[in-house]
Every structure is written in structure tokens, then in C-alpha cells.
Design a binder for these strands. Structure first.
Lengths: 249, 249
DNA sequence: GAGGATTTGTGCGTATGTATG
DNA sequence: GCATACATACGCACAAATCCT
């Protein structure tokens, strides 16, 4: 149950413990009032000195996850991992639903470019077709959750960057360009260590983990509309594939 | 493009550089023969001492990603990731199909126990019901790919451990106990650093990443049969959810 | 094949970060 | 806060293997 810690692998114990506490919070480590066990008990549970636990708590307090009060204890400020559903009707804001008060997607960059090989394959385009690339950042209550790069055929979706930028919704932007509805065709999922751009945009610690999904969305006739790569902060979200709700007939 | 490195964040520079090199490989860091730039050049590019780059390369070599040869250079060992499909009919051997000559699942442990809260919830059982726990290891061509822990209701599936152990197939074991077919109801996916048991059973380097899936399988009447937690070696597999093939009607 | 250039492997001394009691 | 031990990172020097002219 308790993650076992290892020395000498390039990640300091206090950071492993910080990650362990963060994960533990989602699993009932804190009591119903949000109070963590005392430092001495955490130290024993993780098998380290209390100094080390204090360093971990200090880091989490600096991130805004915990708050320590002398004489009272240490309390959790934010609790659960967000659940991000994956299915036919996957959309950012709708998916997170009522798990956060405010879910929004913000455009942080765009460019026109010639499609790379795998983009042409995903969108079923001819080699070298012009495409629009859009970089966006998804937040839940202000906390960065995901970072996406999407590609669209340039001729078919001229002006989509402006539409997305002004509405903050990909669904709305596509609707404005004649795609009334769309469906997730396929999703591939991998996990890797965060790159520099991930740590910067998602405000992660170096060495953190990102879940990478590659997806293709099609319109109702089955024609590819959008392909995208999304990196999720692995300690903030959990992907859920509800097979039965999709395929159960 | 040049990764920004930071000291004193609890993650050693050599590990940040290892992650940077791994990411760079996917982005054309190595030339067409798979050769990396010399250590001296990498050191200058990352702004660190050559010793530090060497520590990063040593870690990647230990993981099997790189291979150094004195006087010649450092080369990328490319190995393709296995694609593991997730859907209604997810099964270990059938899923990997012809990607490996030999895919097998081996039982490495079993026990009878009282169901934990989340197991009773997943299997729709009363609190404290007896369950059988089965630990297994999935291999493709002898290389460990996944490590699973599954739970079954003890009364309903008495002897399942022996059946699974002798057949090496969960599908066959369930068939022998009256479950002709079953379907994946839901899958949740997260990612974290490998724990000690992961590094041991899956033969991973410390600090490697595992993808964790939690799944429930139901029989054709929709009654839960099995719930399981599976840890995949993130650098050996990629999960693919084919939404359309499942839900597209 | 000889010799120089390139590249990885090794040793040592020192300063700072991490972890313990 | 202090003392101690180990991990990390640097700088310099040189050895060993390989490549090229």
C-alpha cells in the first residue's frame, strides 16, 4: 500500500515522499477534516527521518497542496484527483463536469504548417497538405491539468484558431465552421517523464510524470476532423474508459 | 528546444538530463544511424559537466535505451512498444496478438482474503465477503510486460487459482467455471513511478514509469466477475482505446 | 600500417545538496 | 540547530578504443 522509497536514483527522498503524500490524499490518507497524520507517524510510515517528511510537506505547502499550522497539524487544501472520461463523446469541459467549479481551455499558441507524416495519416490528407496547429492549456479551477496540441486541415477550417481563442471551446469553434457534432475515433495512451515544456506549462516538478494521449476526432460521417496530442499531469488526473457505456448494446 | 535545468528541486540534474535525452531521441537527437552527439557536446548543450551527462547516459544504458562503445560513440537501441488494445473484449494474449511470437500469463501467487472496501464495491459484494486474489505476470517473448492482481468472489469461483495456474489463461479458467464469455465494463488509467515490487517483477530500472489500470469484467448478464489492477511497464507498451470500433454503431 | 583526431572510460580533489540522529 | 555520512556536480587530467587520412 505504502509506496516503497529508494535512495540514489536521482530523485530525493523528500520529493518521493511529497509525491506519495499527494497520491495518498486521493486515497484517504487525510481524515474527514482534511488533517494529515502527524509528521512523526508519516516519518515512521515512510521509513524516514522526520526532517525528511518536513521537507516534503514544505514543498507541498509551497505548491499550495498542504497547509501546516503550529500546534494544530497539517491540513489538505485540495483533495481529489480529477477523473477524465475517455469515450466517444470526450470533450474537455464537459468531461470534467462538476468536479471543478471552473473548467476552461485557453489557447497559448497557433501556427500554420505543412503536415507531418503522422498527421497526414491521422487526418487522411495528402502529403504536405497545409494544416493549422493549435496549442492549448486546460485548467480546472485555475490549476493546469492538460496541455494539448491539435491539428486541423487549413483549407477546411480556416479561422479556427481565432474562433477557439475567443470561445475557449473546441466544440464551439468546430460548430462555427459547420461541424455540428464529432466523435472520438481512437485514443492511444502512453506515459513518460515530463519534458521541459511540460514542467513549464503545467507547472510540474522536473521528473514528474505525464500521461500522453493521441486522439483522432471524426465528424458524424466518419471523416477525420482533428488529431491531437494531449499531455496530462499524472498526479492530477486519472483517465477512465467506460467500455460498457460505449459498446454495450 | 534546449531543456532548462534546475538545481535543488529534489530531482538530480543527471535524471533531468536522462529525461531530456529520452525525449530528444523521439525528436531527432540521434542521427540516422542511431548515434547520439558526443558526451562533450551534450554537456555543453545542457550546460553541465561531462560527468553529469555520463551519469544520465549510464542510467539510460541500464534501462536498455542506450548503448555506449568506447571510442565509437553512444547509440540508441530502438525497440518498438507493444500496442495493448483496451475495449470490451480486452484479454492479454489475444490483445497482443501477432506482435510477439509468444505471449503468456503466469501465476506468481494467490491467496484467500476478506475483500477490501473498493473490491466489494467493484464486484458488488457484501462487506467482508471472501475473495480469491491472484497475482500474475504477463510476458511477451519472455520479456515482462505487465503485472496483475485480480480478485474473484471465493464461493462462486472456487478453484480458479488452480485452473488459471494450469492453463495460463484467465479466459480458459473462467470458462471452466461456467463463465462462457465476459466483457470489460470499465477501465481507469493512471501513471506513477515504479515501486519496489514493480522493479523486481517487471525487471525495471529504479525510477521507471508504470501505467496502472483498474478494471472490472462482467459476464454477459452484466454481473461483475473479476476486478483487477494491472501495472504495465510504460516503456514497453502503449494502450489504445478504439472508441469507434466499440461504440460506433 | 603509422599517426593524429575523436570519443568513451577512469581517477582524484572539492563544493554543495540530501538524510540521519 | 549541530554533527556526521552519503549523493550529486564540477573541473582537470589522462588512459583506452576507434576512426580517418
Amino acid at each position: 500500500m505504502t509506496a516503497r522509497l529508494q535512495r540514489g536514483l536521482g530523485v530525493a527522498l523528500w520529493r518521493q515522499i511529497a509525491d506519495g503524500i499527494r497520491a495518498g490524499i486521493a486515497n484517504g490518507l487525510a481524515d474527514e477534516t482534511g488533517r494529515l497524520p502527524p509528521e512523526a507517524e508519516l516519518a515512521e510510515r515512510f521509513g524516514v527521518n522526520r526532517h525528511t517528511v518536513r521537507a516534503a510537506i514544505a514543498a507541498l505547502a509551497h505548491e499550495g497542496v498542504l497547509e501546516s499550522q503550529q500546534g494544530r497539524g497539517t491540513y489538505v487544501r485540495r483533495r481529489k484527483r480529477l477523473i477524465y472520461p475517455i469515450g466517444e463523446r470526450t470533450r474537455f469541459s464537459a468531461g470534467l463536469g462538476d468536479q471543478a467549479r471552473d473548467t476552461r481551455s485557453e489557447m497559448i499558441g497557433t501556427a500554420n504548417e505543412s503536415a507531418a507524416a503522422w498527421v497526414t495519416a491521422a487526418l487522411d490528407l495528402a502529403t504536405g497538405t497545409g494544416v493549422v496547429r493549435i496549442e492549448s492549456l486546460g485548467r480546472a479551477d485555475g490549476i493546469p491539468v492538460s496541455r494539448s496540441t491539435s491539428w486541423f486541415e487549413a483549407d477546411r477550417f480556416e479561422g479556427i484558431a481565432e474562433l477557439f481563442s475567443s470561445t475557449g471551446s473546441m466544440t464551439a469553434a468546430l460548430a462555427g465552421l459547420g461541424v455540428a457534432d464529432y466523435r472520438r475515433a481512437s485514443t492511444s495512451i502512453e506515459a513518460r517523464h515530463a519534458e521541459e515544456a511540460d514542467t513549464r506549462e503545467l507547472q510540474l516538478a522536473p521528473g514528474a510524470i505525464v500521461i500522453v494521449t493521441r486522439a483522432v476526432n471524426c465528424d458524424l460521417s466518419g471523416r477525420p476532423v482533428q488529431c491531437s496530442v494531449t499531455r496530462f499531469a499524472a498526479d492530477r488526473v486519472e483517465l477512465v474508459v467506460d467500455t460498457m457505456a460505449l459498446g454495450g448494446k
